[in-house]
Design a protein around this nucleic acid. Structure first.
Lengths: 341, 341
DNA sequence: AGCCGTCATGTAATCCATTACATGAATGGC
DNA sequence: GCCATTCATGTAATGGATTACATGACGGCT
């Protein structure tokens, strides 16, 4: 580790005091242009980099944003992450990623601890459970934004898409195609997005006067895994009266459903229509291309960081509840319902 | 932001000096058990968390590891990342992710700057170009580990798989299946892995006395994109004498190749064998399941962090060059070559 | 001329944990 | 019984940047 140049070195080289150097480099004015010139030249030549620990200690900030993410392998989260990182870099913040694996392991003590330990200036959660009401305590003390998932009915800033409407549109589209027995593969987690997508599904059925049928509701594992999507589909498709269409709350689940259908000799979309949710990259990497709901992950990430920044700098009138537009994208896994003769 | 408890508060509450508190909490001995007891009790009750900026300033460390990653959407990188994060957390380090997008934008000045700006204790690069020799300068000054990609012929610690052998095995397998015209879709980047996979491809041809044919070598874009895999495949398959098998240097490229083949009316594996590289999740999400080379991404991540830690604490005899085992996995995209009559 | 205000710059306090050094007590060897 | 050593603990210096306050110069006003 090479010896670090400190502000004192710059001051000596420029023939001024440390205060002046600091003022120049932090652009606080009250310094003669020619003095500024000297200081900048000295700082450049010595390749001076301020010691962040010292600065943060003094200013009582860290310029670090903590991101609570459940896993990186899901392309949904990696896109959000990219959005956050891009904006935070522009704003001069570093992003520290804390892998939560299972969001059930989070609690108030742990999150408080993370905040204090890392002296983070703010936090973005990517996967909070909808009943984690303790988060309100945290949000009262530290800047926080919930991205994608958020705690229901609590006034904590969050950003997401309108999952309920999106799901309803998606299922209504299936109904318009003539489907009446429509199954849902949802996830056995406590995310609000899952709950709202389920609500949207029920909304659509109700609007079309289709009675709710518990047997058409299947639960995949909490992590949206491909394998659990297959398993859930097997249950639905083994029903005496199987569905002609299945709405899935995530793309990976939908892929699992398609795989299971194939194994059972069903052709998608001819024998079964399937829709996904999120529109991750690989929905168009192989046929049939997936009909799904596109969610602007990258933008969700960007906007969360902007919202968080507004909170950190206490911008007056900062938004606390943002919904970005979604879009149902009809591709190749859905088709008109054709009753077999 | 609530007022922070500082060491002085703990000292007062425990009726000792700050030095004693520090000694107890840092387990440096020379403190009576009963005094330790008092201090720990006070610290617990006040929920004392040391101020990291202050500690780091004093100890001249940061407990932060910088990770240079090109993009998160590639599942290869997200798995490596997960491995790094898991180990670093256990060792008490935070991981700071710097998105490099394009590894060509990296240079000595930028990397030095990143080190100094973030006061990182060490760095792991995920995608350095094989000719970025300036990295040697950096490695002389700061702890550094190159994961997956590394600079060729420079003595900088690195960890990866033996790409050349893996590629050779993979192509030899195709040859054993009777293929003689074997194309390669590689990437137009400057990564050593691409170069070595190409070398392995050539090794296998040479061993089987198959002449090298430049027209069978196609370059996809630098980022391994699905679309560029399709484009490269179109070139190869439009040849007067097209290949009967294509070796791809990444799974996504292979998916692109399969898509392009399908569009041109070719059935994989009957009309064309395809192999990938990495074995990312979605190789078995739809049929045909991809024949590929499995690379232990997660373990590569884990071991990089361990190697880096050894360097940081200056463990004597720390390894500087590690290769983890790979495995050719034959699935459904490859088949015996059957010359059409 | 005398006073005040503004501006450029400097001096020194501050942020908080760590740790070198200092102190005083206790123990052990002779 | 005395000196040396070890041990428990305290006091104060330290790390580097920021910034409140101090200083001195200069210009303008009455």
């Amino acid at each position: 580790m090479p010896r670090m140049v400190k502000i004192e070195d710059v001051a000596r080289a420029a023939g001024v005091s440390v205060a002046t150097v600091s003022r120049v480099l932090n652009e606080q004015g009250h310094v003669l242009p020619e003095t500024q010139e000297k200081v900048r030249k000295a700082a450049d030549e010595l390749r001076y980099q301020p010691n962040l620990s010292a600065r943060n200690l003094r200013k009582n900030e860290s310029r670090i944003i903590l991101i609570l993410a459940p896993n990186f392998s899901n392309p949904y989260y990696s896109n959000v992450l990219a959005g956050i990182c891009d904006v935070s870099r522009n704003l001069g913040y570093s992003t520290l990623i804390y892998n939560t694996y299972d969001s059930n392991a989070l609690d108030q003590t742990l999150v408080t601890h993370l905040f204090q330990k890392n002296r983070a200036d703010g936090m973005i959660t990517l996967a909070i459970n909808r009943d984690d009401r303790w988060l309100t305590q945290i949000a009262g003390k530290y800047p926080l934004v919930q991205c994608s998932e958020y705690v229901e009915d609590e006034p904590i800033p969050h950003i997401s898409v309108d999952n309920r409407s999106a799901a309803k549109e998606s299922v209504s589209m299936l109904i318009a195609q003539g489907h009446r027995r429509i199954g849902i593969v949802t996830s056995a987690n406590r995310y609000l997005s899952s709950a709202n997508r389920m609500r949207g599904y029920l909304d659509a059925l109700e609007e079309a006067d289709i009675a709710r049928d518990e047997s058409l509701i299947a639960y995949a594992s909490a992590d949206y895994s491909f394998a659990s999507g297959k398993q859930a589909a097997r249950e639905l498709l083994s029903l005496p009266e199987p569905p002609s269409a299945i709405f899935c709350v995530s793309d990976i689940l939908a892929l699992g459903v398609i795989a299971a259908a194939g194994k059972m000799g069903l052709q998608v979309p001819w024998d079964l229509s399937v829709t996904g949710f999120d529109d991750v990259d690989y929905t168009t990497m192989f046929h049939p291309y997936l009909t799904t709901v596109s969610v602007p992950c990258y933008d969700l990430g960007r906007r969360s960081m902007q919202l968080l920044y507004d909170q950190i700098v206490q911008k007056p009138g900062a938004e606390r509840e943002v919904y970005l537009p979604h879009k149902v994208i009809v591709r190749e896994t859905t088709a008109q319902y054709a009753k077999q003769q």
